[in-house]
């Protein structure tokens, strides 16, 4: 996975920051079969997503393969000002990871 596997949009309005993020990941559950070979496609999904605001963890998400392909996640937190950094990091079950930092608009 390339480093730019996450797209982040963060906006502050009335002291509440809304963060929207889109990650690029196949999110295979491990229960799906390859139509051509009939074999199970091995599980490959994001297990943990950590979201930080100015270095402090705001939200930690643990996922199963039940989250859709190319996962989208959105959350809100109190505080946050223009120019603050929002960092999102994911780790998958195969040891892959991705991270991205964005500024609040």
């Amino acid at each position: 996975m390339a480093k730019s596997s996450i797209k982040i949009r963060a906006k502050t309005k009335k002291d509440v920051t809304t963060v929207k993020a889109l990650m690029t990941h196949p999110m295979e559950t491990g229960g799906r079969k390859d139509k051509k070979t009939g074999k199970l496609i091995p599980a490959h999904y994001i297990q943990e997503v950590v979201c930080k605001h100015n270095g402090a963890t705001v939200l930690t998400a643990n996922w199963s393969g039940g989250v859709s392909k190319n996962p989208y996640v959105s959350f809100k937190f109190a505080g946050g000002a223009k120019g603050d950094s929002v960092e999102i990091t994911w780790h998958d079950n195969k040891g892959g990871s991705g991270t991205q930092t964005a500024k609040i608009k």
Binding site: V16, T29, G31, H53, A56, T57, V58, L59, T60, A61, N62, W63, S64, G65, G66, V67, S68, P71, Y72, V73, S74, F75, K76, F77, A78, G79
Partner: peptide, 23 residues
Amino acid sequence: PVPLIASFSLSGSAKGFVSTRIK
């Protein structure tokens, strides 16, 4: 088949709001 899809742990400043897309 696996009912639990996602869990989110929130820290102090996080609001009770999460949105995602599931299968």
